[in-house]
Amino acid sequence: MRTSGSGTLDDLFKYLALVPLIAILVVLVIAPVGQLIVTSFSRVRFASGAVVFSPVGLENYRNALQDQVALRALLNTTALAVISVTIETLLAVILAISVGYVHRGNLLFRTVFIFPMLLPPIAIGVMWLMILDFNYGVLNAVLAALGVNGPAWLAHPRLAFPSIIVVDIWHWTSFVFLIVLAGVETLPHELSESARIDGASERQIVWQIILPLLRPIILVAVITRTIFAFKVYEQIFLLTDGGPGNRTEVISSYIMRVFFNQNRMGYAAALSVLTLIFITVLVIGFMYLQSLLTREREARS
């Protein structure tokens, strides 16, 4: 105990404070998750006016490991997550540090950079459709006014995926920015001031003082963002619907289709569990890599 309490009821506060969270987990989370696991080992059908679960062992999992569409969707999602989260983090860190240097207009910049996150994803899909659509998008209209024939941004085999990434970056840099900015604002000023007095250049201060101090917060942002990236669905649905071919198919929309359109709840449950395992491995791998790098860096200095 970091603290010492007085009185029995007071001692209980430690536990009482945790009760609401535990209650939520027990009442609202355990049952759905348990059901998910049972379902993933079952075949679910409609028969005689009821939903019938029959156990099938590992069949759903075996099928999932051979499912080419699921594999493709998972690879696309991973690529989308890795590429867009990397770029978003870079941009957000640059913007957040820059905002930290500015005093005039600070409020304006912060508000603008947080703004995209506030829009409903489905509206963001439509908004970018109005820009990127081949036939009536603003981008190609502007290009046409300049005498250039714009390409089919969302339907060209090589452009569709990059277009989706651009939209994702526009949308989610705001989230990483919000979190990293929080870190920037709480940086202890004394360190950089004393470095400045010692004659360090501004570049050295950013690289050697600010960025290392920001690392833990960036890590939080990256992990949360990566997890969110695996849920991306609504905006892609409107922009490319997974096409052309299956180049922008993502795992969350595939799971939804298997669940409802294909009416295979057991299989969808198995895909959900496997996706969960996949993200966990990804996140743990990333954290391990990160801690290795930190240790190496500390060893060097």
């Binding site: 659509d133 081949f134 036939n135 089919a152 339907a155 060209h156 569709a160 619907d241 052309p244």
Partner: peptide, 21 residues
């Protein structure tokens, strides 16, 4: 078709007809 034929669904077909193209 327009170059974006791969992403044309029912709503887009109807829009193209509505816009006279």
């Amino acid at each position: 078709s327009p170059q974006d034929y791969a992403s044309i669904g029912q709503a887009q077909m109807i829009s193209l007809m509505q816009s006279g193209r």
